[in-house]
């Protein structure tokens, strides 16, 4: 794994696994000194106002960190991950680990959860900031902004369009069914929260989650002789057009979302990516500007037409052979 095997990188990779175990084992080991249930929620003045069983707290914290860590390791092993996933795992480690530590400390040697110590909003804020700082640090250590990780599959394709022919290519792609399902559940949830006037914070956070999800469950692409245009999501908004005059070549690529740090609109060094699923896509090569990566079904057809149009306009530039 080339230059990533330094001691600090190894620690970043393996420590979350150890922390996941610690988060489970330590509360259980000192359970004689803790009330059960534990105080797990405090009001704004810092007085405890909610409780939960000890084993559940330990399990949830540990499993959350463990899942994130396994995803982190897996993506790292196959060379997909650069800095983004690492930053997210460590953000979670600090946040969840810190929450559990504060919770245990507040409950330690108390008779019942109602007697738990003050855990004001100040500490929660400190945790979030600390987690953010650590996450950013990990992101920097693991390489910061990465370059476009996709490699072109084969030479730039052609669709067989000749001089004097007009052509248009239209295509689309949709996210995996599971993703669409989650998006719909959250959308319905946010609608329900709005209708039944649940807590405004819950309603707002659901809406904020639902909108980007709906935006990224599908996309449509059109290639005409002037531009490549994409429409996002079921509403077709946003709509973005990339003029062919800036493009010198289109390539077919295999897109791995995690390599770009996830789904949606992604910015990596040298490229901007519109990602709604894993799999085939096109890359529009634009010298002097960021390349554009778009996941779309039938990528070879789209790339082929773009290349043919560029060829007839005398602006196609082949990749330098290695």
């Amino acid at each position: 794994m080339n230059d990533r095997t330094g001691v600090s990188t190894k620690l970043l990779l393996w420590l979350p696994g150890v922390i996941a175990v610690v988060l489970l084992v330590v509360p259980l080991a000192i359970r004689d000194r803790l009330p059960d249930p534990l105080a797990i929620h405090w009001d704004l003045s810092g007085a405890p106002n909610g409780s939960g069983p000890l084993i559940l707290i330990a399990l949830v914290s540990s499993v959350a960190v463990a899942i994130a860590w396994v995803v982190f390791l897996r993506t790292y092993r196959v060379g997909m991950l650069e800095s983004h996933a690492g930053a997210m795992v460590w953000f979670l480690v600090i946040l969840v680990g810190g929450m559990e530590t504060f919770t245990i400390a507040a409950n330690l040697d108390r008779a019942t959860w109602q007697d738990a110590a003050n855990f004001g909003p100040g500490r929660a804020a400190v945790l979030v900031v600390l987690a953010g700082v650590v996450g950013f640090g990990v992101w920097r250590v693991l390489g910061g902004t990465m370059t476009d990780p996709s490699v072109a599959i084969g030479p730039a394709p052609s669709a067989g369009i000749e001089l004097g022919e007009h052509a248009v290519w239209v295509g689309k792609t949709a996210a995996a069914k599971g993703f669409v399902g989650i998006a719909l559940v959250i959308t319905v949830g946010s609608a329900a929260a709005a209708v039944f006037r649940l807590s405004p914070v819950v309603a707002l956070s659901l809406v904020v989650t639902a909108l980007p999800l709906l935006m990224f469950i599908s996309l449509r692409v059109r290639v005409s002789n002037t531009a490549v245009t994409i429409w996002m999501g079921i509403f077709g908004v946003p709509r973005v057009s990339y003029p062919l005059t800036r493009i010198i070549r289109a390539e077919v690529i295999e897109v791995r979302p995690l390599a770009y740090g996830g789904w949606g609109y992604r910015i990596v060094k040298g490229a901007r990516a519109w990602i709604v699923r894993r799999g085939e896509g096109i890359r529009l090569v634009r010298p002097g500007k960021s390349d554009i990566v778009i996941t779309v079904d039938g990528a070879a057809g789209a790339a082929g037409l773009i290349n043919d149009i560029l060829m007839t306009q005398g602006r196609f530039v082949a990749a330098e052979s290695s």
Binding site: A159, I161, G164, E165, H166, A167, V168, W169, V170, G171, G298, G301, G304, L305
Partner: peptide, 9 residues
Amino acid sequence: MLIKLKTDS
């Protein structure tokens, strides 16, 4: 879907 037109056809 690719649709092409030959205008001199």
